[in-house]
Design a protein around this nucleic acid. Structure first.
Lengths: 129, 129
DNA sequence: CTTAAACTACGAAACTTTTCGTAATTTGAT
DNA sequence: ATCAAATTACGAAAAGTTTCGTAGTTTAAG
């Protein structure tokens, strides 16, 4: 189950759980609806499927369930990046990174963070070759 | 039609067209089969669908067609990154970049490229390429 | 000109994911 | 204890994507 790539809808739900922590279906559905219209039972159904797939766990509270992500944000991000890296960037991380740098309005602060991170990599164990 | 996010299969085909230039179905199918088994008519069908969607154009040569991507690699990469950025990285490009740097065995040469690119951005004009 | 091989066209099945309606259940409030 | 509102359960339709078989067309080669 590690290495599972969530579907689009699943990912949207996971994002909310990652950002806001354990939540009810109602809360998740409200959040989703800030971006686009989604029916309540649609969200419920997908969360039930995710529960069956063990992507999320739940706990009963009052008459509702509180759902919680069982998979880690970092791992999932990694899986998604890996996938996109292979299929769209022929495995070249630098191309991906430059695309990301180029197209986003990355703030100076963010760029500083990235530079620091690179320095850290260069000092420590460096990459292949 | 700009901002179209290709399906998984479509993307695999586009990658081949981007890498090798205009190609026949046979060529594309052979390339695909280097990674996983795919039937010839499956590839054909998907390319026909892509043609209908105007993702690719074609030209008759002998008894076959030569297909060519109509959408740009950079743009498509951008669309895919944008999507993943929104859904998995809550819009933070720096987080995405650090994840990418962190998890890949990025070579020194690649890191140098990235550093140069960052310096270029810092000097002034951002915007890609 | 004939024909076998190479290709294309295309419907339909098989899957996967999302959406939705309806019924059943639970519980907080009276 | 009752019941309306909140919530869950779940089947099935709808939508999207991939796979495949078969039939039809085209053309290179004799």
């Amino acid at each position: 189950m590690t290495n599972y790539k969530p579907t689009e809808s699943e990912l949207e739900i996971l994002s909310i759980l990652w950002e806001f922590g354990p939540s009810t279906v109602k809360f998740v559905n409200d959040k989703l609806n800030e971006k686009k219209e989604v029916g309540y039972t649609t969200t419920l159904k997908i969360m039930q499927i995710m529960f069956d797939k063990k992507l999320i766990s739940r706990e009963k509270l009052g008459r509702s369930h509180i759902y919680k992500s069982k998979i880690k944000k970092d791992e999932t991000q990694g899986i998604l990046l890996e996938k996109i890296l292979e299929t769209a960037f022929s495995g070249s991380a630098s191309k991906l990174i430059m695309q990301a740098l180029g197209r986003s309005k990355t703030s100076k602060k963010e760029i500083e963070e990235i530079k620091k991170y690179i320095e850290k990599i260069e000092r420590g164990q460096d990459g292949a070759q």
